[in-house]
């Protein structure tokens, strides 16, 4: 609790560091913030062609929205995923890349990884705004679901922040972390229902049945992945336009709280040694 109060007292610094990153990022570019759309758009084109047109993966139409556009369905999962992945990548480097600051000035260290959540989140908010407009043009009625959307965005940000905190410390001790994690993140994406629907797993899973004589199926193991639940909630709200099942909300919130609690615990235990270890 004391720790939370300390972070709260540093909120102005947190805001300023976030602004530093946001302002610094697109300085001296002509298109500025528009660049943040370039990456998701490129990915969208690639997956739409490869997965949607060549492999002919067809997710079910939005129920009840009736949307049936692979590209939009994809983005509803892809944008949250790229957010998580950028927060982890940037958060993980935040301590090492600010080593000079940590060694020369005293301040609440945790604001460094947290400010990356802020600056990446700002970009994400912009991307999601564009997606909401695109989905609306395609015929979905998103307006009533916006509060739910904002809520799940906050929950996902908390989840990503916790992982970022843990890994930022790990990266101080082992610089391998950042290289290792970039591979893990790629694998993680393919093990999450981002470019294909989860129903693709259910079929084979039923055929195989219970694994090793138990009644745990492949699909059960697949659903241990927290992102499966997050993506489900995002798609329910944005693509299907319905309120997600209560259990999905609980699972997401549970993962987020656990992640942040562990992240803060790890961070707090190690922050005193940062200046000399870096």
């Amino acid at each position: 609790m004391n720790y939370l109060r300390e972070i709260w007292r540093s909120r102005e610094l947190l805001l300023n560091l976030t602004l530093r990153e946001i302002k610094g990022k697109y300085k001296r570019t002509v298109f500025g913030q528009l660049w943040s759309l370039a990456n998701p758009l490129a990915l969208m084109l690639i997956y739409t062609v490869v997965v949607g047109l060549i492999f002919r993966v067809k997710p079910a139409p939005g129920d009840p929205s009736g949307l049936h556009v692979y590209a939009l369905w994809l983005l509803c999962g892809l944008l949250p995923f790229t957010f998580v992945s950028s927060v982890i990548n940037a958060g993980l480097r935040s301590l090492v890349s600010n080593a000079g600051l940590i060694q020369k000035v005293y301040f609440t260290r945790i604001v460094l990884p947290l400010s990356t959540v802020g600056s990446v989140g700002y970009t994400w908010l912009f991307e999601m705004g564009v997606l909401v407009i695109a989905v609306s043009i395609a015929g979905a009625f998103v307006l009533p679901w916006i509060p739910g959307l904002l809520l799940i965005m906050v929950i996902l940000a908390i989840f990503a922040a916790g992982i970022g905190l843990m890994l930022s410390i790990a990266n101080v001790y082992f610089r391998d972390t950042e290289h290792f994690i970039s591979i893990v993140l790629q694998i993680w994406m393919y093990f999450s229902p981002i470019i294909y629907p989860v129903t693709l797993i259910d079929g084979p899973s039923k055929k195989i049945g219970g694994l090793l004589g138990t009644n745990i199926t492949l699909a059960d193991i697949y659903r241990l992945n927290p992102l499966e639940h997050f993506v489900e909630v995002f798609r329910n709200l944005l693509y299907d336009n319905r309120w997600p099942a209560a259990t999905e909300w609980y699972i997401c919130a549970g993962w987020a709280i656990a992640s942040l609690a562990i992240g803060m615990f790890v961070f707090r235990r190690n922050e005193r040694n940062l200046a000399e270890t870096l």
């Binding site: 102005e12 610094l13 300023n16 560091l17 302002k23 610094g24 300085k27 000079g100 600051l101 000035v105």
Partner: peptide
């Protein structure tokens, strides 16, 4: 000047650095 961001102006850095210093 630790914590100065080289692309930001002096004015922006005064506010940034001031808040780093508390």
């Amino acid at each position: 000047g630790s914590g100065f961001h080289s692309e930001l102006s002096g004015r922006e850095n005064v506010f940034l650095n001031g808040s780093i210093l508390g």
